[in-house]
C-alpha cells in the first residue's frame, strides 16, 4: 500500500443473516479514478455507506490517508476529506443552490453561535469569502446561473451538478460519486464523465465512481473493481476486467434477467 489514499481491509457487513459485504479488500491509489461496479444488489452501496460512515462495518478496517476511520460518524469522515454524492439525489430542497454549497463548507468554516449573532468582522469576512467560493464551485460544476433558486426548483441535470458542487465544497481529498449519471441522457453522461476525468488534474482529487453500467466507467477509470453478491470477483485495469470470465458471466446473467 505504497501510496494509497484509501485502504479497506477485509471489510465485512452483515444485515441479520445476510452478508452484504464479504471480507472485501479494496484500495484507491492517490490521484487516480477508481470504479466500483457490479450488477444491482451487488453490495456497492453498502460498501459505499461503510466508507462514508453511514454503516458501521461488522468487521474489517478502513484506513484513509494513513488514519483508521473505521466506525467514525459521517461528519467526522467528511471532515477528514471524503466527500460524496447520493445515488438518488439528496439536496436540501428548501435551501438555495448557494446555501446547499455553503452547507458543504460547514466543516471548513469556523463561525459559532456568538459569532452568528454579533457578526464581528471576522465572521462577515468568512461569510463573504464562503459565498464567493460557493459561486465559483457552482460555476465550475456547470451551474453558472440560478444560484439563488431553491434546490427543488432546479431541473434534474442541474440538481446533479449542484450535488457535485456541494460535495466539492467539503474540500475532499477523495470524492465518492454514487451512480452520478443515473437518469442522464447519453450526451449529458459523456459531458459528466469528461468533467470527472479532469478532477484529478484540476483539483488534485482522487475519485471513486460507483456504477452498475460498466460502459460508463471504462473510459475514465484507472482501475476497476467488480462486486457481486457482496464479494469482490475481479479487479484490474478496465481492459483486464472486461476480459474477465466471471465478470462477463455476472453481467450476462444480469442482462438476461433485466
Amino acid at each position: 500500500m505504497a501510496d494509497n489514499l484509501l485502504d479497506a481491509i477485509q471489510l465485512r457487513k452483515e444485515f441479520g443473516g445476510l452478508v452484504a459485504s464479504n471480507n472485501v479488500d479494496f484500495a484507491i491509489p492517490r490521484g487516480s479514478i477508481v470504479s466500483l461496479i457490479g450488477p444491482n444488489g451487488a453490495g456497492k452501496t453498502t460498501f459505499f455507506n461503510m466508507l462514508t460512515g453511514v454503516y458501521k462495518p461488522t468487521a474489517g478496517r478502513i484506513l484513509f490517508d494513513g488514519e483508521d476511520i473505521t466506525g467514525k460518524p459521517p461528519h467526522a469522515i467528511t471532515e477528514r476529506g471524503i466527500g460524496r454524492t447520493f445515488q438518488n439525489i439528496r439536496l436540501f430542497p428548501l435551501m438555495t443552490a448557494v446555501e446547499n454549497v455553503l452547507v458543504g463548507m460547514n466543516c471548513r468554516l469556523r463561525g459559532g453561535i456568538i459569532g452568528a449573532i454579533i457578526r464581528p468582522p471576522r465572521v462577515r469576512r468568512e461569510e463573504k469569502l464562503a459565498r464567493e467560493r460557493a459561486r465559483e464551485l457552482l460555476a465550475y460544476s456547470g451551474l453558472p446561473t440560478r444560484h439563488t433558486e431553491l434546490a427543488r426548483s432546479l431541473p434534474y441535470g442541474d440538481q446533479r451538478r449542484l450535488e457535485v458542487a456541494r460535495a466539492l465544497a467539503t474540500e475532499p481529498k477523495l470524492l465518492l460519486l454514487d451512480e452520478p449519471t443515473a437518469g442522464m441522457n447519453p450526451q449529458e453522461t459523456a459531458d459528466f464523465i469528461g468533467f470527472v476525468s479532469r478532477l484529478p488534474d484540476d483539483r488534485g482529487l482522487t475519485v471513486l465512481l460507483i456504477e452498475h453500467d460498466m460502459k460508463v466507467v471504462m473510459g475514465v477509470s484507472d482501475r476497476v473493481t467488480v462486486l457481486e453478491y457482496g464479494e469482490k470477483i475481479a479487479e484490474g485495469t478496465p481492459g483486464e476486467v472486461q476480459r474477465n470470465e466471471r465478470v462477463i458471466e455476472a453481467y450476462l446473467g444480469k442482462g438476461a434477467t433485466e
Binding site: V54, P73, P74, H75, T78, E79, L91, A169
Partner: peptide, 9 residues
C-alpha cells in the same frame, strides 16, 4: 443523512 454526509455534526 445528507447533512451528516456534508460534514454537519
Amino acid at each position: 443523512t445528507a447533512a451528516a454526509a456534508m460534514g454537519v455534526p
